[in-house]
């Protein structure tokens, strides 16, 4: 089953928050929505989850009962225990108690939260709370899992645990759409949608986005002169469309591709050649 958005725009208070966004996700696939603060990631997820109505375009989603959602705030009740949080979610999704109990204990086991089962949500560490949030979104075995920045502020070990949970669900056939500001994390997805100021900057498989960069990316130890220059760590990179000039030619990665796409959009260049709509 395919879910997603087709040319969805969201206009609020006279301003366009999301413009002509298209996104498709199939069963067992992971789609990353990448963008900076205010780029429209949460709005896009809000339309997908049914919280926001699109001003134009079509959102194709499963029934509410088949969607799992993790809000940016984790959505964990601080004054309920881990177990009570999961039990409430299971009951809200109408799961039979016996089935819910099996599923809850399996998820607690997978997330490593079994020893904290009777601890209050408010007394969990950030990573544990986020894992509980993901477990709660998964308790009813949804067809579409939507995660708003699931690993922001989470330690590396917990991030790894969250990813293990997510990939396990995709093996079951669950479609996953998540937003992130981490490009290394986006590379785990089969398809990446890059948003900037409410518009899709570029999208496609991570390798495809990188491969679609025309010309060459060159590395400089000091800031070179010219347009399309950005910093990576201690060095500088520059993009030359004609493939000429000084510097060492480097193989660009997703981060280079996204930064370059943003620079080219800012320069008013057409991005038709790098976009790979699906």
């Amino acid at each position: 089953m395919n879910w997603g958005l087709t040319s969805v725009s969201v206009v609020r208070g006279g301003g366009t928050i999301l413009e002509e966004a298209t996104l498709k996700v199939s069963a067992g696939e992971i789609v990353a929505v990448v963008g900076g603060d205010g780029s429209g990631k949460s709005t896009l997820l809000g339309v997908l989850v049914g919280r926001l109505g699109p001003s134009a375009g079509v959102a194709r989603t499963p029934a509410r009962s088949r969607i799992g959602f993790l809000p940016a705030s984790s959505g964990v009740y601080p004054d309920l225990t881990v177990l009570e949080n999961l039990r409430f979610a299971a009951a809200a999704y109408g799961m039979p108690p016996a089935l819910a109990a099996d599923r809850i204990w399996a998820l607690l086991d997978r997330t490593g939260l079994t020893p904290a089962a009777h601890r209050l949500g408010g007394r969990l560490s950030g990573g544990m709370r986020q894992k509980l949030g993901v477990a709660r979104a998964l308790v009813h075995e949804p067809d579409l899992l939507i995660l708003d920045e699931p690993t922001t502020g989470v330690d590396p070990v917990s991030r790894s645990d969250v990813w293990w949970l997510i990939t396990r669900e995709t093996a079951r056939g669950c479609a996953v759409v998540f937003s992130t500001t981490y490009l290394d994390e986006a590379e785990r997805a089969g398809h990446v949608v890059v948003l900037q100021a409410g518009r899709v900057l570029t999208q496609g498989p991570p390798d495809g986005i990188v491969a679609a960069i025309p010309g060459e990316v060159r590395l400089f130890p000091t800031r070179p002169v010219g347009p399309f220059v950005w910093r990576r760590g201690r060095s500088w990179r520059v993009w030359r469309e004609d493939g000429t000039g000084d510097g060492t030619v480097v193989r660009p990665d997703l981060q280079d591709a996204v930064v370059l796409a943003a620079l080219r959009r800012a320069a008013g260049e057409s991005l038709d050649r790098t976009e790979t709509p699906r």
Binding site: R51, L52, G53, P54, V58, A59, R66
Partner: peptide
């Protein structure tokens, strides 16, 4: 259920999967 989402559902902008219940 914000008005935008309700209105969108009414006019079918949020297309649901065939056979699924809202």
């Amino acid at each position: 259920a914000p008005q935008g989402a309700r209105r969108a559902r009414r006019r079918g902008v949020l297309a649901l999967a065939a056979g699924s219940k809202p």
